[in-house]
Amino acid sequence: MSELIIENVWKEYGDQIVLENVSLTIASRAFVALVGPSGCGKTTFLRMLLGQERPTKGTILLDGQPIPTEPGRDRGVVFQRYSVFPHLTVLGNVLLGKEFSNARYKAKLLGATRRNAVEEALQLIGEVGLSGAEQKYPAQLSGGMQQRLALAQALIMKPKVLLLDEPFGALDPGIRVEIHTLMKRLWHETQMTVVMVTHDIREAFTLASRVVAFERRRDRPEEKQRYGATITKDISIWPPRLAGVPSNFSPDRDGPIDSLGYRRDDPALSGE
């Protein structure tokens, strides 16, 4: 199980209030997308779940226990950039988590343990669609492949919670569709709860089982300092998406939009 309970969390930097009174319960195996305008504190919120930052007030519980105050192996993460290690090959990147947990001082595996770990890593590399690229360095991979690698690297730890910080934001649309399909499959197949920050509403509704919007209730310039953002919308996708349960109802929103006639943004045909 991996239920997250966030209770009355505030985050302040000096005088600046970033988040105020955020309460949210995320069920085990849910896929929550956090959306909202830039600078509304979604990434700050994710960092608190990660343990990179601490809430000023309030508590965050993972399975009833307060989450540790530093990042750890129960919470995996994929950032938009710099998620993979440039000095390790694809295989090395995926293997690293195994080496950290099984070799305390050397952080390197040898012999049979290494063979088992390599086998597991290769399987995972295949699952994210990187077979054949095992010996390549990240600089030799495209942006989409690097994010696939980052996913595989996080998944080998079997984290309770996977945190995604605009992971597909820098990818072009075609690649994004492919990686969305992969992401959905991984969510169905693994046991983890996923929390994703995105600025792409469409992505949020395509992937998530629940979309949570952060917004500042008061956003006049003189109020900005003293009023933070909080949860203003909490939308569960209907019909419900459940991890591991295929749904015929949820249309794939990545599909092409049928365009009938002209839209307002289309360039004018005549020379107006």
Partner: peptide, 12 residues
Amino acid sequence: EQIIKAETLGGS
């Protein structure tokens, strides 16, 4: 991000 990532992989 790299250091954080390494921490989430359980690195000391």
